[in-house]
């Protein structure tokens, strides 16, 4: 990718009028609303680091803020890719996790044991280790009925992330089903429901609500974990960030604003999820 010439850049404010101080003043004036000013601090932290470097830079060298603005579209594309991976991993992991959770609750001796062991292994291994497993042990293509299906790295990484999701969802399902009182099972049985019918028609609908907050929690975690894909060579936001840094001449003062921008993106994405989860939890608790 070729970098646009400095003259193509959008005009930015003079170094004197610090647009970033505006939110700071706002944050100060606000009556200490819980957690509210936090967004702004992040911005300010970013700015505080960016500004001295800005002052040093000569006319030919872009200020850190200008670098971030210039590359923001590319970096945001990378971020969108992270979000896409997280959504896919969540979908796969949830489907597998519900199955695994139900297997833990199944009758019989072998299946629940096996399912429990699988859950424990994938829940307790570091996510990065699981990612390495999938990246190195899954082949780059598989042959199904004579058709060669290529498995690109990003797809393998998605599988890698869906493993811990699966284990965590399985635990959530198990916990939620266990929390439904036994009398519900008895009532269904006396109405001649089969075990499978009871589970799908009576028990799971009841605990779906209870499963939602912890499930969303898992999602926030997986969304933040997707950056680990860069460690195993999948191109995503952090990889692009490092490339942008190199493209801008590898100036050390650019690290903080560029990684700060990544922090900001994830924060703006995950914080609302976190708040929403907390709100849901509170609402379900009071019932």
């Amino acid at each position: 990718m070729s970098a646009p010439a400095p003259s193509d850049l959008p005009p930015s404010g003079r170094p004197g009028d610090l647009p970033v101080l505006l939110p700071f003043a706002l944050a100060d004036a606000r009556p200490a609303a819980r957690l509210r000013p936090a967004h702004l601090w992040l911005l300010c932290g970013l700015a505080v680091i960016a500004l001295p470097a800005w002052a040093q830079g000569g006319a030919a060298v872009l200020s850190p803020l200008e670098v971030v603005i210039k590359w923001a579209p590319l970096l945001l594309t990378g971020f969108a890719f992270n979000v896409a991976i997280s959504l896919m991993a969540m979908a796969i992991g949830t489907a597998a996790g519900v199955g695994l959770g139900l297997a833990m609750l199944a009758e019989g001796r072998v299946l629940p044991r096996v399912a429990w062991c699988v859950t424990q292994v994938f829940r307790n291994l570091p996510w990065l280790v699981l990612l390495f497993f999938v990246m190195f042990l899954v082949p780059f293509q598989v042959t199904v009925f004579g058709v060669r299906v290529p498995l690109p790295d990003w797809l393998k990484a998605t599988f890698g992330f869906s493993l811990p999701v699966m284990a965590n969802v399985a635990e959530i399902v198990r916990g939620a089903v266990r929390s439904v009182p036994d009398t519900q099972w008895e009532a269904a049985e006396s109405l001649a429901f089969s075990r499978r019918q009871t589970m799908w028609r009576i028990i799971l609908p009841q605990c779906a609500k209870r499963m939602l907050p912890p499930w969303m929690n898992v999602y926030a975690l997986i969304a933040m974990a997707t950056v680990q894909a860069s460690i195993v060579g999948v191109t995503e936001m952090l990889t692009l960030t490092a490339q942008v840094h190199a493209a801008e001449g590898g100036r050390p003062e650019l690290f903080a604003p560029l990684y700060g921008f990544a922090l900001l993106c994830f924060f703006l994405y995950c914080y609302p999820i976190d708040r929403f989860t907390a709100a849901l939890e509170r609402r379900f608790e009071t019932r």
Binding site: A38, W41, L42, I49, A220, M224, A225, T226, V227, Q228, S230, I231, L238, P252, F255, A256, P257, L258, Y259, G260, A262, L263, F266, F267, C270, Y271, D274
Partner: peptide, 17 residues
């Protein structure tokens, strides 16, 4: 901030930034 951002980016921000 620390709860809602990826720990890996935090590490990079500290170490490189």
């Amino acid at each position: 901030v620390f709860r809602n951002t990826p720990p890996l980016v935090q590490i990079f921000f500290f170490y490189f930034g």
